[in-house]
Design a binder for these strands. Structure first.
Length: 829
DNA sequence: GCGGACTGCTTACCT
DNA sequence: ACAGGTAAGCAGTCCGCG
């Protein structure tokens, strides 16, 4: 058999084989195949217990699971020296740290230090074999692997950089240049026959699976249904195929066979519902559950890759940086409405017994279709993104789609440590050796250290405003001052004087310790100098999209690179490093303000890394750029030029119109997604008027129009010319109902009413409610009528919303409304 | 018993 | 479960009030 080519999708430990197994996808044949480890790699931990004592130190059961004990030399960055340690290999991964009694705990209890024992075995395997998930490999018959890459030397443009950065870039650029392979995909959704009063429980699958819908990338749509007597057509009205079964076991088996044909399978909550239900139900009915592999909180497929979109869309980094915060809740309905503009059509009841088979099939298909569309959104952008996150983090696609950004960063760093034979430090050790105390006082109660500076805005309308900012300020600081857990409070006496922030006692290593500052700098350089450019200039559309995804995925890592140091559960947690980074940012900000003032420039606002400068010339801006660069060594650059900006007295609240008429709205109430659409629409009309203002003189006319608009909406409110839906507040329920213990916010009150009505209420769901007259003041949207609406309350809401901009325009909501009243009175008489 | 000043909780936003 | 800072609206508490 010739060598096989395959894209590495994931790695897992197989209990049957007692070894690591790699899952590959062959882009030529579309097949997924498994390759067993052929190197004899074993799970292990490192310890300072002497090699010859290990088997005596362990209980007999564990000693029997030892595979090998050997000596190993590692570089210890916390102490900046080489250390000789004992490598303890086990026959199975659970012996290391997963079993109730395990080697990690027993050695620790005997007073020894243990390293690298909390790393999952499949991650450990990836590091040691230098594998990059998401990349193409050639697999020899004997199971040897070779990465297929058009390995070029480092492009010219990076030859001027620090050699350490060049080294990192040489390994990263091939991962970014090569696009991800096309993949056939399918979306799956199931419905379970359950009565009205009970949600089906996947841990007790006692109700039959009534329908399974599948929608695939070839345009196939089919619903597999269980007959319950009565006529079932062969097709749904929309053309989807109906496959009928008399026997549920056969239905499930044939569905699982169909699923096995796809390398990529999307579900919405398939980890915790669809697949556990199918698998357990299959077993209960005495049929095989292959290819489903159930784990504690995920469901994998041996024959392909399962992406649970619920987990992916609940990921804050994905929500914020990939989808620009467009959706509020995490239910399929909410996400689909926000991203696709499509809402689910609900059945009249959740009592599926009373629903006709064909209607249930249609309902099920609808979910599968939405899931399919979400999985393939933006001509496959999500899939491209997963491949890139996987290649950057060295995490398998299945992991990357289920974990947060701190795990991605952790894995990226651990991989680099192993590659260089550096010891991965334990969190306790970092705290003990480099300190965990912080010395700055947070402004927000309960926070650990001080963050960014936000300048007091100068309220009013300002014409000709330049916005300057430090591009990726925190990553730049990490790179420029080399701040990381590795360099902060290093063991060298001679570095103690290197204290770039006088107010903090921490010092930074001068001897070039560490990897992370170089890694972050490398990712930043390559994003700015290569992929941002290519995302614009590349001729081929497909490649341009690819480079844009590269650029965006790098941004996700960069944006979180500082935050993880301040995150308690991050294994490389370092509050001193985090505090040093924000302190340097404040310093950079203050110095820039000082320099701007020296040049006679007027700073009217600024937040964290930006300065709003009024009435400057291009020459002055360039001068400021030059001065700041020379004094700080980081770049302050012109971001955009506003024709005018409306500032209120509130921080993080403003409105700006750029020279080419693009309007930016930040923080204003009218922009928040939870306010009623009615108010939002009024606000947007006002924005449209303001967008067309070019000169101070235009404002007179614009103000009149603004007043008219507001008046018309107030009138509509009073005469009840609105749909109830337009008055609904939409607030996300962020946790389960019973965990609201201290207070009962209004949306929780409404959610409890809904639950008592037998409706399903889950975290991540958006609760829609209106404000009504009477004791409780709120009511679920679907229960209220126009007569109950508290119009006074809505007028109040319009007032606070508009006053945020009216104040700065020297206008007053109350007088606009009064004006309206008097005219209507005149009309009346 | 009731309202005003206050604090704390929750959500949504900005960087 | 990346961080801290800002704002709004409401729930709950305390205090004064013959």
């Amino acid at each position: 058999m010739p060598n096989r080519k395959g894209v590495l999708l994931s790695i897992f430990y197989s209990g049957e084989d007692k070894s690591a197994v790699m899952k590959f996808y062959d882009p030529d044949t579309g097949e997924v195949f498994l390759v067993r480890d052929n190197t004899g790699h074993k799970p292990y931990l490192l310890t300072d217990a002497p090699p010859d004592s290990v088997d005596r130190l362990l209980s007999p059961n564990l000693a029997a699971r030892l595979f090998r004990v050997s000596k190993i030399r590692k570089y210890d960055v916390l102490r900046d020296r080489y250390v000789d340690l004992t490598k303890v290999e086990a026959k199975d991964p659970l012996a290391i740290g997963g079993s109730p009694r395990n080697m990690r705990d027993e050695l620790t209890k005997r007073g020894f230090t243990v390293w690298e024992a909390k790393i999952k075995y499949y991650d450990c395997y990836v590091y040691d074999r230098d594998l990059v998930p998401g990349c193409v490999y050639e697999i020899e018959e004997e199971g040897n692997l070779e990465r297929v890459t058009n390995e070029n030397e480092l492009p010219e443009e990076f030859r001027d950089l620090d050699p350490r950065i060049q080294e990192i870039l040489s390994s990263f650029i091939p991962l970014f240049d090569e696009p991800s392979p096309p993949m056939r995909s399918v979306a799956v959704d199931i419905e379970v026959l359950s009565p009205l009063d009970r949600m089906p429980d996947p841990s007790k699958p006692d109700r039959p699976v009534a329908a399974v819908a599948m929608v695939d990338s070839e345009g196939e749509r089919e619903v597999h249904v269980l007959s319950r007597g009565g006529y079932i057509p062969d097709e749904l009205p929309n053309g989807a195929k109906l496959v009928k079964y008399e026997n549920e076991g056969r239905l499930i088996r044939s569905v699982l066979d169909r699923i096995s044909e796809y390398p990529l399978v999307f579900t919405y909550n398939g980890d915790n519902f669809d697949f556990p239900y199918l698998a357990r139900r299959a077993r209960e009915l005495g049929v095989s559950d292959r290819p489903i592999r159930l784990e504690r909180d995920r469901a994998l497929l041996d024959t392909g890759m399962h992406v649970d979109l619920y987990k992916l869309f609940s990921n804050r980094s994905i929500q914020v940086y990939v989808f620009n915060n467009k959706y509020l809740g995490y239910t399929l309905d909410e996400v689909a409405e926000a991203l696709l503009g499509e809402r689910k059509i609900e059945l009249g009841t959740r009592d599926f017994y009373s629903v006709e088979v064909k209607d249930l099939a249609e309902y099920c298909l609808q979910d599968a279709e939405l899931t399919y569309k979400l999985g393939n959104i933006g001509s496959g952008e999500l899939i491209r993104l997963l491949f890139l996150l996987s290649r950057i983090s060295k995490m398998s696609l299945e992991e990357v789609s289920r974990q947060g950004v701190s795990s991605w960063i952790r894995n990226m760093i651990f991989f680099e440590y192993r590659r260089r034979n550096w010891l991965i430090p334990e969190q306790d050790e970092i705290k003990a050796i480099r300190g965990e105390r912080t010395y700055s006082q947070a402004i927000i109660k309960g926070k650990k250290y001080m963050g960014a500076i936000v300048l007091e805005p100068e309220p009013g309308v300002h014409f000709n405003v330049a916005v300057m900012d430090f591009a990726s300020l925190y990553p730049s600081i990490i790179g420029r001052w080399k701040v990381s857990f590795e360099t902060i409070n290093c063991p060298h006496e001679s570095c103690r004087s290197n204290r770039p922030v006088e107010e903090l006692p921490h010092w930074i290593c001068k001897k070039g310790l560490g990897i992370i500052p170089y890694l972050i700098q490398a990712l930043r350089d390559v994003r700015v100098r290569r992929y941002k450019r290519r995302a614009k200039e590349e001729k081929d559309e497909k490649m341009r999209e690819w480079f844009d995804t590269v650029q965006r995925s790098l941004k996700v890592f960069l944006n979180a690179s500082y935050g993880v140091f301040g995150y308690e559960n991050f294994p490389l947690y370092s509050p001193p490093a985090a505090e040093m980074i924000t302190a340097l940012a404040r310093k950079a900000m203050l110095l820039s303000i000082k320099e701007a003032k020296k040049l006679g420039l007027r700073v009217i606002y600024g937040d964290t890394d930006s300065l709003f400068i009024k009435g400057a010339t291009e020459r002055e801006i360039e001068e400021l750029e030059r001065v700041v660069e020379s004094k700080l060594g980081i770049d302050l650059e012109l971001d955009k030029w506003y024709r005018y900006v409306v500032l209120s007295k509130l921080k993080k609240n403003y409105l700006g119109v750029t020279k080419d008429g693009v309007i930016d709205v930040k923080g204003l109430l009218g922009k928040k997604r939870n306010i009623p659409r009615f108010v939002k629409k009024a606000f947007e009309e006002v924005l449209e008027i303001l967008r067309n203002v070019e000169t101070p003189e235009d404002f007179e006319e614009a103000k009149k129009k603004v007043a008219e608009t507001i008046k018309s909406y107030v009138k509509r409110l009073e005469s009840e010319e609105f749909e109830l839906e337009e008055l609904a507040f939409r607030t996300m329920l962020s946790k389960s109902l019973d965990s609201y213990k201290k207070t009962t916010p209004q949306h929780v009150k409404v959610a409890r009413i809904l639950e008592n009505m037998g409706k399903r209420v889950v975290p991540g769901q958006v609760i829609r409610y209106v404000k009504v007259k009477g004791r409780d003041g709120v009511m679920p949207l679907e229960l209220a009528s126009k007569a109950q609406i508290d119009k006074g309350k809505y007028l109040e809401i319009m007032k606070t919303t508009f006053e945020q901009i009216l104040d700065s325009l020297d206008m007053d909501f109350d007088s606009i409304v009064r004006e309206r009243k008097s005219t209507s009175l005149e009309e009346f008489f």
